[in-house]
């Protein structure tokens, strides 16, 4: 069974975000990127399934800044193959990315396609569901647990309020992963470096998406913070004293 895991890089929100001079995008010059945290969960779930049932985990990503490192990190964690889809995909919409990925993944004989349920940049929709529709495969999103049995998977989909729905789906199927059953594994930088030497990064030329988001950004702006919090500053003891007063007045 091939378990395909599309991953992507997103801006690290720990960094301060600034708007560029066009007023329509982030100032990306100094932006730090990291793998979408939900893609990390998808990879972890894929590796857990491989460990339990065998098969091959194939991490795949569209060409872009820093993506080689992200793919090597996936290899270091245990991905059997890492594939970069080459082409000029800078600033690509999710819909177009899904179409390009579908073109490549469709030829990989997928059993399961696991990717993150969402990312912080999903302006035009979530990759997992878009991908499923371009592949013509069934899908379930917001998945927190996957069990494989024969040609079927049993998945848990999270609703609000702690409620979970259980579905059974026949493979191949695309799953948008919210959380893996285990915390995504960590690999030290040394292991990633080692993977860079020992792993073949496969390159497959991607196609022309032929679709776009169907919309364009007219402006980007920071949320208004007016009417927000009254900030309390000072030494820890001062702050604590003021907070204690506020809390007592509310109780």
């Amino acid at each position: 069974m091939n378990i395909i895991v599309p991953i992507k890089q997103v801006p690290d929100l720990v960094e301060e975000l600034e708007i560029d001079s066009s007023g329509k995008d982030l100032d990306r010059e100094w932006l730090k990127y990291k793998v979408n945290e939900f893609d990390d969960h998808a990879l972890e779930e894929a590796l857990l399934l491989k460990e339990a049932h065998g098969g091959a985990v194939i991490a795949i990503a569209l060409d872009g800044d820093d993506i080689d490192k992200a793919l090597y990190a996936a290899a270091a964690k245990g991905a059997d193959r890492v594939v970069k889809v080459t082409g000029n995909y800078a600033g690509i919409s999710n819909r177009a990315a899904a179409k390009v990925l579908a073109g490549v993944i469709g030829g990989m004989n997928p059993g399961l396609v696991l990717t993150g349920v969402q990312s912080v940049e999903d302006r035009d929709g979530q990759i997992a569901v878009l991908l499923a529709h371009y592949l013509g495969l069934p899908h379930v999103s917001v998945v927190t647990g996957v069990e494989v049995s024969g040609g079927n998977v049993t998945v848990h989909k999270e609703y609000g309020g702690g409620m979970v729905a259980e579905f059974e789906a026949s493979m191949p199927v695309v799953l948008g992963v919210q959380a893996a059953r285990e915390t995504p594994r960590y690999v030290p930088v040394a292991r990633v470096r080692q993977a860079m030497k020992s792993t073949e990064l496969e390159e497959i030329a991607g196609g022309d998406p032929g679709v776009s988001s169907g919309s364009s950004i007219s402006r980007m702006f920071k949320p208004e913070t007016g009417g927000g919090a009254e900030m309390i500053s000072g030494s820890a003891a001062d702050v604590a004293a003021k907070l204690a007063e506020i809390i007592k007045s509310k109780m």
Binding site: A229, M231, V239, K248
Partner: peptide
């Protein structure tokens, strides 16, 4: 902080124990 009524940017490891003492 856009949703909070009161905000504190001091380190939680300093503020929270101090707050426990004051309550």
């Amino acid at each position: 902080f856009s949703y909070a009524h009161y905000g504190v940017t001091e380190d939680l490891f300093d503020v929270v124990p101090a707050l426990v003492d004051k309550l």
